[in-house]
Amino acid sequence: MDFDLSVWMTRGPYILRGLYETLVLLAGVLVISAPLAVLTGLALEARSRWLRLPALGLSWLIRGVPPLIILFIAYYVLPVVLDIRMDSLTAAVAGFVLYNTFIMGEVVAAGLRSVPKGQHEAIAAAGLPWFRSLRRIILPQAMPTIIPPYVSYSMDMVKGTALAGAIGVTEMVTRANQAIVATNRPFEILIGVAIIYGIIDAFLIALQMWSERRWDHKGHLSA
């Protein structure tokens, strides 16, 4: 079979519009779930059992459900059960944010656990305000532990966005499939899409390396 890349001349713009939807979805999920993940991580590590136990239960539940099922629930079940009607993209963002918040929440919790106990005790002894000490002392020390798995899960998220096609988001893979139907050129299109995903992931890896350089292993912010 001949390999004809000219299919990207005719179908490329259509597929790349799907890349835009993929990036919007990804950015929405990562931006919204990041602060929620920090709150979830704090709740998972909270001393109060009223905070910790519900957070643990929800985390166990949400992480155990496949993301595709969460998307189906957001798009198909919520309108019937709770009369909540979201368009495809909003439902996808909401579903992925829910899933990602608890996945990343566990990463944040692991990072918080990595900070030596003595630091927490010193903060308590010095009577420093909670939020300030969290921002200035605890989180910076937890960052070197948090960043690698956080980026790794974000890369999974990049690939996971393809699931949103099942609820009508015309992201890149959905559009690639539609282009394959119209052109009968699966290999050229799929390899091209794989390269684009590789580029996005390479960008995230570069971001991870840059972040790791900024926070050294002692949690100091480099200049």
């Binding site: 198909y76 309108p79 019937v80 099942a166």
Partner: peptide, 11 residues
Amino acid sequence: AGVMPGLAANR
């Protein structure tokens, strides 16, 4: 796979 569930969900 989403067509019939979507009809059932009033989508």
